[in-house]
Nucleic acid binder design. Structure first.
Length: 505
RNA sequence: GGCGCUUUCGUCUAGUGGCUAGGACACAUGCCUCUCACGCAUGGAACACGGGUUCGAUUCCCGUAGGCGCUACCA
């Protein structure tokens, strides 16, 4: 069993956009699979027909494509264990429901939702279990004839798992160790609904994981309470020897305040909680995504990997392949992790720094074009190399460097007051004359000539450069001056200087 | 309410029966400098509480408190 082939799965239900916590769960599964040379399966758990949302499945697939998490088999990937969409596996589940029924490990229950509601109102903390099942309407409490006639008349029913009370159920969790619970606290879970001829999560999950030969179940902590039930189900089918190993991941929490991370937190604090932008087909509302918010997928992956896991060293920037080799389920933290979106922004900044200028220029080019500016790629790369260190997002590059493309039409008031003195116009006039006379307008040559002139005249470096900057940029910020004048060229430099002299006087 | 999980700087975390409890983000200060950033340096900042066990507990045990989750014919 220990040398079993590693096969793990990510099995979302297509009920909407993929939550960032789900992305992390998928990532951990992926890292684990890759590290062990195993397979990663994409399964769709659409057993709740009421909650199905159009487009969700494609959205999830697209999200993983963007993030660089790929699957080996499953919906849209093929494989030998299909179909991988649970709604297409009805007949399989029916067969296994029958096995449980025939073995007396499950039973049919005819109680209507209304009857159950009434019971819950009558009895505080009502639970459908060994203590109450004989008082309900099911194949255990009713006679065979009654059951038969109910069935004949087309009465809808559910199949419930018959949990035997008073048993210690042990779940061995890779992250949490041994977790023991008393089966008496478990209820007789609904396994199957005749209404839509579909199983519930618990049955479908166990049957599929078994049939698909899943070796490890890595999922969110919200499943920990039902893990004992799952163990009981594996036993009921006699599959305990090939039962997957469990690992329950801690949840992602709000950046501040109480509770788990929600879409609202993102809206309130200004960060996405979904990988891609999502347009809800029902409400028409739009939720922002990491991709559209200009996060680099590598940064999102890196950040997520470290949210609840740590390799034990001080290295924080890691590529996907480094993550694959270092990842360790046993080192996952047990407590929930607050979603530190500021650190995520820092990761994005780091990845911008690490990517080549040409890669960033390629991402930035459409932004430039959208502003109606046409620029050659080599020039944009130079600008990117000068500016990328000062932004957290690629789109911020525009505000930081638009002066390269568009001459200032107005001058920042504060900067004018601070940097444009009464003799600035005259000095800039001198500078313009000097620059105009330069045959060689290279950055190096300008630097040499201007420095010599400043020294000769006894001017201050700051007064000249800052006024010069104001003339070319319109503000008091930007890279070294000759990195600006050199790139925009002699003609443009002189035009901007003259305009500033004219306007500012 | 019941059951389960959990608890190291504000946040993500490393770590150990004896350490000045380490790193990163954020924050502050300084340096660099033609500005703004980057960068570099420095600083403040944590073992939830109460009992044990022990020569000694942040570390092991038990309680308490806080946090999180589950408690559906949802996953």
């Amino acid at each position: 069993m220990t040398d079993r082939k590693v096969r793990v799965r990510f099995a979302p239900s297509p009920t909407g956009p993929l939550h960032i916590g789900g992305v992390r769960t998928a990532l951990y599964n992926y890292l684990f699979a890759k590290q062990h040379g195993g397979e990663f399966i994409f399964r769709i758990e659409d057993t709740d027909s009421n909650r199905f949302v159009e487009g969700a499945e494609e959205y999830i697939l697209e999200s993983f494509r963007w993030l660089g998490i790929d699957f080996d088999e499953g919906v849209s990937f093929g494989g030998n264990y299909g179909p991988y969409r649970q709604s297409e596996r009805r007949d399989i589940y029916k067969k296994y429901v029958k096995i449980l029924l025939d073995a007396g490990k499950a039973y049919m229950a005819f109680d209507t939702p209304e009857e159950l509601d009434r019971k819950r109102n009558e009895i505080e903390n009502f639970q459908y279990d060994a203590t109450t099942r004989m008082a309900m309407r099911n194949s255990l409490s009713l006679s065979a004839d009654e059951v038969e006639s109910l069935l004949q008349s087309g009465h809808q029913y559910v199949v419930r798992f018959k949990v035997e009370p008073g048993e210690k159920v042990v779940v061995n969790d890779i992250i949490r160790g041994v977790v023991t619970i008393d089966s008496s606290i478990l209820d007789d879970k609904v396994l199957y609904k005749s209404a839509d001829e579909l199983p519930t999560y618990h049955l479908a999950n166990i049957v599929d994981d078994h049939l698909m030969e899943v070796s490890h179940v890595i999922r969110g902590e919200e499943w920990l309470p039902s893990a004992p039930l799952h163990v009981l189900l594996y036993r009921a089918f006699g599959w305990q020897d090939t039962m997957p190993q469990f690992a329950h991941l801690s949840l992602l929490l709000k950046p501040e305040g109480n509770g788990k991370l929600s879409k609202r937190d993102g809206d309130r604090l200004g960060f996405p909680v979904f990988p891609l932008e999502w347009h809800d087909p029902k409400s028409g509302s739009v939720s922002s995504g990491f991709r559209e918010s200009d996060y680099l997928p590598e940064a999102v992956i890196n950040f997520l990997a470290l949210l609840g896991w740590n390799p034990g060293d001080d290295v924080e920037i890691m590529s996907m392949s480094e993550l694959v080799s270092k990842f360790d389920l046993a080192k996952c933290s047990k407590a929930g992790a607050r979603f530190d979106y500021k650190k995520m922004i820092w990761f994005n900044h780091e990845y911008i720094l690490r990517k080549s200028d040409s890669e960033i220029a390629k991402i930035f080019m459409p932004v430039v074009k959208a502003h109606g500016v046409d620029v050659a790629e080599p020039l944009l790369e130079k600008i990117v190399s000068l500016m990328k260190g000062r932004v957290n997002f690629v789109h911020e590059l525009w505000d930081a460097c638009s002066f390269y493309f568009i001459a200032p039409t107005q001058y920042d008031e504060k900067t004018v007051k601070k940097r444009w003195k009464s003799d600035s116009a005259q000095k800039m006039e001198e500078l313009a004359t000097l620059l105009q006379g330069l045959e060689d307008f290279s950055i190096e040559n300008q630097d040499k000539a201007v420095h010599a002139w400043i020294e000769e005249k006894g001017y201050g470096m700051g007064e000249i450069m800052n006024a010069f900057r104001l003339a070319l940029v319109g503000e008091g910020k930007g890279p070294q001056m000759f990195d600006i004048s050199g790139l925009i060229g002699k003609e443009e430099t002189l035009a901007r200087l003259r305009r500033a002299i004219m306007v500012l006087g």
